[in-house]
Design a protein around this nucleic acid. Structure first.
Lengths: 222, 222
DNA sequence: CGTGCAGTTGAGCAAATTCAACGCTTGTGG
DNA sequence: CCACAAGCGTTGAATTTGCTCAACTGCACG
């Protein structure tokens, strides 16, 4: 299988083709596993959207940079999440690894042509797009709220996606959170501190959050 | 055709079935035309999303109301725009007519089953979803910007969708615009006035905007 | 043991909101 | 036909929220 993907290297992601054989690992016939170091670019805005990605471990952020340097993070993707599906032929956002990350990479055309034959594959593809739409809608909804509501909502969302029910290990920096929520790092930091002060959360370390009072937190959500 | 839709009333929108024959008009086999008065509800959040709507004339807003009464407008739909397509089985937003509005209503299942046979119909359906996703992403992007950037961007967007190149007839109130942009009516009003003061726009009346300096406006877009 | 990065905290400031008053248009009833 | 109420929009003043600028801490890594 590994040898076969070497033979078919041209059908995979450029970085896959370039990688030495030992750096990639075939998982099944649906794609190859790639690893990205912290902050490494996975793809760039306006690049051809020829591949779909599924996070195996680590975390990914998609983002845009405005003309004046402001950065807007579109989404964070955690293990199990699929990203890179675009409505057009090009990526609308850039994607980077937040931490060292392993992703399963599959050629989009393979999935699309399979979807044309297999209704359940088509439905899966639709599901990915659907999730993306819902995410964007909820993100827009969050951005009309106050700083405290945004941060509380972010934590609730992360908790829901976390493996442990009430503990969150944040893979991303305060700057990442700020750029996702449309706030400054200072405001995010202050809000974390404030949420700790009112006993809604605990902050054993800056990247670890324990939900101490879910009810209070969800009341702050707006 | 009109009589036939009367016979098949059960497959149409409840309001269609309830309407007297003279109040609806069949356009083609894809659906029936319905009219909604200013501020009339077209569908509600959490209702079954069994129909697709295409604006013929007028304007439509989709929105959610938060627990504390704040309203977030998801989108405005102008003639030619399709709305009501949801990723799940229920509407994520409510929809209302902004002004007296005529829409073409089609049963979703009809389009879906056609898409299963006809690839171009499938592509059209995908296109509608794609536009919706792009819209939501751009909306989120707009909401991290300053008030002036949001308003300028909104006007540029409306101008792009307007029939006349540099003149916009706004169908919606300042409150609608404010709820769409995540601002207050006062801030929207002040920003309009300010844009007029710097000669970026003219305001012959409160609902009419003339773009006087597109370059200045797009510079303010961020 | 420094150096650099990430995060926190404080003080002052700018942007947007809130509260309030007022003008204009529209529609309605006397 | 006029008077007046209601809705919409604008403007002003005070207040609040979040941002900017700046200093400082803790920690990891060379």
């Amino acid at each position: 299988m590994l040898m076969q993907s070497a033979v078919n290297a041209r059908q995979f992601h450029p970085a896959v083709a370039a990688a030495a054989p030992g750096e990639r690992e075939a998982v099944d016939m649906m794609g190859v596993v790639m690893t990205f170091k912290r902050n490494a670019e996975i793809y760039g805005e306006n690049e051809a959207a020829d591949y779909l990605y599924k996070v195996i471990s680590g975390a990914v952020r998609t983002y845009k940079v405005l003309a004046d340097g402001r950065r807007q993070i579109g989404s964070f993707y955690l293990p199990g999440d699929v990203f890179g599906l675009e409505v057009g032929s090009e990526h609308a956002f850039s994607a980077e690894a937040v931490t060292d990350t392993r992703v399963l990479v599959t050629k989009r055309s393979v999935l699309v042509s399979r979807a044309e034959r297999d209704a359940s594959a088509a439905r899966q593809l639709w599901e990915v797009a659907a999730r993306e739409l819902r995410r964007a809608q909820e993100h827009a909804l969050a951005l009309i709220k106050t700083a405290e509501e945004r941060v509380a909502g972010f934590l609730m969302d992360m908790a829901k996606r976390s493996s442990q029910p009430d503990r969150i290990d944040l893979p991303m920096s305060r700057q990442d959170i700020a750029d996702y929520l449309g706030l400054t790092i200072e405001t995010v930091s202050r809000t974390f501190t404030h949420l700790e002060a009112i006993a809604a959360i605990d902050l054993p370390s800056s990247r670890r959050v324990v939900l101490r009072n879910r009810a209070a937190l969800s009341r702050l959500t707006g």
